[in-house]
Each structure stands twice: as C-alpha cells, then as structure tokens.
C-alpha cells in the first residue's frame, strides 16, 4: 500500500521526550482528520511504547536512542513503529499479559501493552534479547 506521508525521528531515551513523541504522532495523524478519540488513542499508545523503551529497554540509562517511524497510508490508516536497541524481551507473550511488569518498584502498572492493544487496531511486538525491540501499531483513521 502507498505511503502518503511519513515522519522518521530519533530521540534520546529521556523521559522528557515521551510528550514530544506523542504530540508528533498526533500532529501527523491530524492530517487525515481523525476523531478526538482516535487522536487520544494514538497519543496514549505512542506514549506507552516510548515509555517502555526508556524504562524497560534502556532501564533508565543515558545514551540510548529511540527510533520512531510514522506513516500515513493511502487507505487512511496510521502506522507507527517504535524501535530501541535495548535489552530486548525474553518472553514477549508474558510481557504482553495484563499486569505483568519487571519494574514494580518504579510503579509500572504492567498495563502498557494491554493499552496499546486496546487503543490501536493492530499491535506487533518483535524482540531479540540483547538486541532490542520493535513495536509496530496500526490505527484506522477517519469517521
């Protein structure tokens, strides 16, 4: 399918960039006239994915990078992928279960993947321990 528009960005894994990433995603999505709810869904899902990269993949260490690619497709869908070169996930199925978290002391609720799944139409997680994780999400936009 044809890509109508895209944005590619690389951000340092700093928590202050969580807001930047979700606002950028909403700005691109806004080009195809989404509903307010769809915008909120995208902002929330992108915020979850980027937070995971910062908190879990890089475990708060400085120097890590988060790579984000966002595409608007011909059929009005929005595809976003969030990639890191962090620690990776050993068991993706377990990580996607509600309330599973490896960082309870940091008050992680373990709901990140569940929220991404609920708010987007499609969620794909690819990970290799020691090499990193790519989360790709699709949302159909329009009224």
């Amino acid at each position: 399918m044809k890509t109508v528009n895209f944005v590619r960005m690389t951000l340092p894994a700093k928590s202050v960039n969580e807001a930047y990433a979700r606002v950028a995603a909403a700005a691109l999505a806004s080009q195809v006239d989404p509903t307010i709810e769809q915008m909120a869904d995208i902002k929330t899902a992108v915020s979850e994915a980027v937070t995971n990269a910062i908190v879990h993949a890089y475990r708060g260490q400085e120097g890590g990078l988060v790579y984000i690619t966002m595409r608007l497709m011909e059929d009005g869908s929005f595809i976003v992928s969030v990639r890191d070169r962090g620690c990776g996930i050993g068991d993706v199925r377990q990580a996607r279960e509600p309330c599973f978290t490896t960082a309870p002391s940091e008050e992680r609720s373990g709901m990140g993947f569940s929220i991404m799944e609920a708010f987007m139409d499609k969620l794909q997680v690819r990970s290799a321990p020691g090499r990193g994780t790519t989360v790709t999400m699709t949302k159909r936009l329009g009224r």
């Binding site: 929330t44 937070t51 008050e107």
Partner: peptide, 13 residues
Amino acid sequence: TFMDSSGLGFVMG
C-alpha cells in the same frame, strides 16, 4: 487532559 499507564501506576502506588 492526557494520562497513560504511568498515571495508573501513580494511582495504584
């Protein structure tokens, strides 16, 4: 105006 699962973590904490 916006909250993700970190807000949930805050409430449960």
